[in-house]
Design a protein around this nucleic acid. Sequence first.
DNA 1: CTGAAAGCGCTAACAC
DNA 2: GTGTTAGCGCTTTCAG
Lengths: 343, 343
Amino acid sequence: MSSIEKVARLAGVSTATVSRALAGKSTVSQATRLKVEAAAKELGYVVSSAASSLASGRTRNVGVVMPFLSGWFYVRVLKGAHMALADAGYDLTLYHLDASDGGTDLQRRRERVFDEFLRRQRVDGLIAVSLELQDAEIDKLHASGKPVVGIGGPLAGASTLSIDDTAVSMLATEHLVALGHSQIAYIGGSAHLDLDFHLPRRRLDGYTAALEQHGIASDPLMVRTADFTIEGGYNATLQLLGDPRVRPTAIFAASDEMAIGAILAARDLGRRVPEDLSVIGIDGHELGEFFGLTTISQFPETQGRLAVESLLVALNDAQAHPHHSALPFELKVRRSTAVAPQA
Amino acid sequence: MSSIEKVARLAGVSTATVSRALAGKSTVSQATRLKVEAAAKELGYVVSSAASSLASGRTRNVGVVMPFLSGWFYVRVLKGAHMALADAGYDLTLYHLDASDGGTDLQRRRERVFDEFLRRQRVDGLIAVSLELQDAEIDKLHASGKPVVGIGGPLAGASTLSIDDTAVSMLATEHLVALGHSQIAYIGGSAHLDLDFHLPRRRLDGYTAALEQHGIASDPLMVRTADFTIEGGYNATLQLLGDPRVRPTAIFAASDEMAIGAILAARDLGRRVPEDLSVIGIDGHELGEFFGLTTISQFPETQGRLAVESLLVALNDAQAHPHHSALPFELKVRRSTAVAPQA
DNA sequence: CTGAAAGCGCTAACAC
DNA sequence: GTGTTAGCGCTTTCAG
């Protein structure tokens, strides 16, 4: 005897009514609902998701796909998404494409995610973080009819949430310009991290545009690339400050971790921050406060939460149109930036 | 017409044969298998996990429950588990109990995870990371008949993997003693983080035992607590080095992040590491290399992977007995520890 | 507002 | 080795 049947029997109603009552359908009388709930509780009944999914076509589960499973940003987004989903009674199944250490190679992994996993119908929808989906992948998703929301960039036919990276970069640069800096170096992402959405490029563009707008010539020697880590920022800064051809009074790093690396490198070279060198980052990393780092916060947990909300709308209203919205950011001034030293 | 039926028709066999062929059952002839695979591929067929689960009772999905979704250790374990599961063709659904920022409170969250989520039969088994399950929770899991493997401590009736925290701590302390240190301070976890498995306590015990074994009196003033973060380690070290009643020549921190905080604090106070002060951590954090930190690595990704392997064994062999095994660790000497300065 | 009954798409006996 | 068939435990028309 199936489980729901026991509940029905105990409550003295039909299985259909149990189903309706427990699903919160409004067409059940208050009295019946109470009886059913009591019976369910007494028996410790929880619907079988497999049976429910099969019958209804809905899984109450959403997939989250990320390129990496490390990195401050991704973990925070995941956390935000997870909490929002849990609050809505949804499960989260995680997919990531990181093949960095052994295991299957990247392309193969991507294929598996799109071909096998997502199409097993295990999820009702998908949140793609910082992933530029390939055309074939988008087609597969559309074919499956599952709504998708993307964080971080344009995604054909999907709702997307993204931060205006160019504006963020301009704001950071202008903060430095306003403090009187004209020798502003930039530490951005390296090309091989530019696979998805060209985030590194857009941030570089914002920096260049801001300089230009203020009549400051940009110097290729002032631009370095790194891998978004503290160590990467440290090394890039060593190069920057050690190069006799340039004399930056400020560094704008495209992530807080790199900015922290810059602060550490400056210290090791005997430069005072911010007296001799101003440093600004992007992210709103917890460590930023510890290092007194001026930054532009981008609230990744909120991004995760918003993505979930957007997805839930699409799930509950098949007519909802793909929609793009801009994510908030905020300049947070701390102690790592100050007026430019007198030449 | 159901999907599998189309494949069957195209391949000219019955749905049962399609099911068998695609599941890799050995009772299908090579020729038939090929025909079926070709048909499935042509139609882009992927089994519906809901239907398959309902019929077979297996979901090919495992749950991973963690107390937090931040913190270096947990993220690495998650990554390791995810990769191992993906390689085995399993999905991973994530549960975490972190209520740190708003949302439902902790106990409520725990209840939901155990009452609603896990019992929806969405998972075949569970991996619990650093979680001491309450009796009621264990009962619920047993009642559901799903295998559980725990990382980090004893779990009634489940297989567990854990590191010998006491031995790790003793090794770290003895490394310092062997370098001639006798004034060894300890920065451990604070009591409120001691909810699960008493990890902070066991590490403290190892430290105390090692000192005792070498005839070194332990001094309560040499023991500080922090929250496993860089900032926490920094502050604890400030207190330690600023206290006129003690003169530590070495600090043993119960995590690499705290150890890095200690190094930073020492620098800020003008103490040289390792000439004036040796510092050792536990973890094997990536940043450790950057800071030249001597540490005891504990390979969390491997822990995640091993947990998966252990769970898969239990899943494939109902007779498998709960089994405990010890996790590897390794002393990694870098530049932050050296012989004790002459008094 | 509630019940009866027909599936949802697959797997696993059981036959052959 | 392969086909037939009876469910797996629910949801959802369709009646009433």
